[in-house]
Design a protein around this nucleic acid. Structure first.
Length: 206
DNA sequence: TAGGCCATCTGGTCCT
DNA sequence: AGGACCAGATGGCCTA
């Protein structure tokens, strides 16, 4: 694949393409990033630049067009990733916050959201069951506490840590804990407990 | 200093 | 044909 860009053409970007046909295509992978702007070119690179000045005009025109398209594509890709990050931020904003206010990473956000949804649906399910058979409620709680064992909706496995040990040992739940939800008859408390466990779960995964 | 996370560039592929 | 999507590569920043 040819990725030669003319340095005869000046663009809005302050980078120079030092890529020639015979170069390794990965060797100048990121000359375009403003944040990654490199130090002045080495003597070898300067010589290559000199050589390329002799290229035919038609050649450069093609490269200018290619470069222009590439820059547009880069711009779209940047925007696309920004949109993705915005969506992730929106997702973070509706998830329970950690006490220490640390920002969840992308993968943590996705996993936490996955678990959180499961926790909420589980909460609803239990609440429904309580309405039917209120006396059996305590039996359901241990499974709730084992958040890492939660079924993955749709059988998807992408968001579940392969290390089951980290998830199966919920950091906060204990049957001997005086505050165990098994002894509590308050639905709101149950919900908080679920979320508390989820925070602990997510934090414990990493 | 190594490792994790992230932003960005890039080329390939799919879709409209 | 052009845009969207994707995955690989790379380098910067931060933290343990």
């Amino acid at each position: 694949m040819e990725t030669v860009y003319s340095d005869m053409e000046t663009s809005s970007c302050d980078f120079s393409f030092t890529h020639s046909d015979d170069e390794d295509s990965r060797s100048s992978m990121h000359p375009a990033s403003p944040a990654h702007s490199k130090a002045p070119a080495s003597p070898a690179e300067l010589q290559q630049k000199k050589r390329r000045r002799g290229r035919a005009r038609s050649d450069t025109t093609v490269h200018v067009v290619k470069k222009s398209r590439r820059l547009k594509a880069n711009d779209r890709e940047r925007n696309r990733m920004h949109n993705l990050n915005d969506a992730l931020d929106a997702l973070r904003s509706v998830l329970p916050a950690f006490p220490d206010d640390t920002k969840l990473t992308k993968i943590e956000t996705l996993r936490f959201a996955h678990n959180y949804i499961w926790a909420l649906s589980e909460t609803i399910r239990i609440a429904d069951q309580r309405q039917g058979k209120s006396r059996e409620m305590p039996l359901l709680l241990p499974s709730l506490a084992r958040l890492g064992d939660a079924p993955s909706p749709g059988g998807d496995s992408c968001s579940w840590p392969s290390d089951a040990s980290s998830s199966s040992s919920s950091p906060s739940y204990s049957h001997s804990d005086p505050g165990s939800p098994a002894n509590v008859d308050d639905f709101g408390y149950l919900q908080r407990e679920v979320l508390y466990n989820y925070n602990g779960f997510v934090a414990g995964v990493y």
